[in-house]
């Protein structure tokens, strides 16, 4: 269980690191939102799954409840984060921001 939690934590860290680099390195607004969305869903899911597994090590009613609350966090972030990304992209399109193309590269 411990090893599995560690693996999940490392996986989450990889997602977070990649997302942070992506936000800095991608060329424009829309493509930057792509790693930003990954951070909140995939990275957060793996981290929280690791924490839930770690809590569930001693099987008791209490730890089960804690794990259930952690899963609830994951569910809510899975609802809100993609919606937020969608809304931001929507606002960008409405404001008339054009997506980046290769031709514009300096």
């Amino acid at each position: 269980m411990n090893i599995l939690a560690a693996i999940l934590l490392i996986g989450g860290l990889i997602f977070f690191a990649g997302g942070a680099i992506g936000i800095l390195r991608f060329p424009d607004f829309y493509s930057r939102l792509h790693p930003a969305g990954k951070l909140d869903t995939a990275g957060q899911f793996m981290m929280m799954a690791a924490v839930a597994l770690f809590v569930l090590q001693d099987l008791s009613w209490q730890s089960f409840l804690t794990a259930a609350k952690i899963i609830l966090i994951v569910i809510f972030v899975f609802i809100t984060s993609p919606t937020a990304t969608h809304a931001i992209v929507d606002a960008g399109v409405r404001a008339g921001l054009k997506p980046w193309t290769k031709a514009e590269r300096l």
Binding site: F76, I79, H86, D90
Partner: peptide
């Protein structure tokens, strides 16, 4: 005001919780 069903539905889900 944009007609955005995704945002409306997601917010309807989140508000009661």
């Amino acid at each position: 005001v944009p007609y955005d069903i995704i945002i409306k539905t997601a917010c309807r889900l989140i508000v009661p919780f």
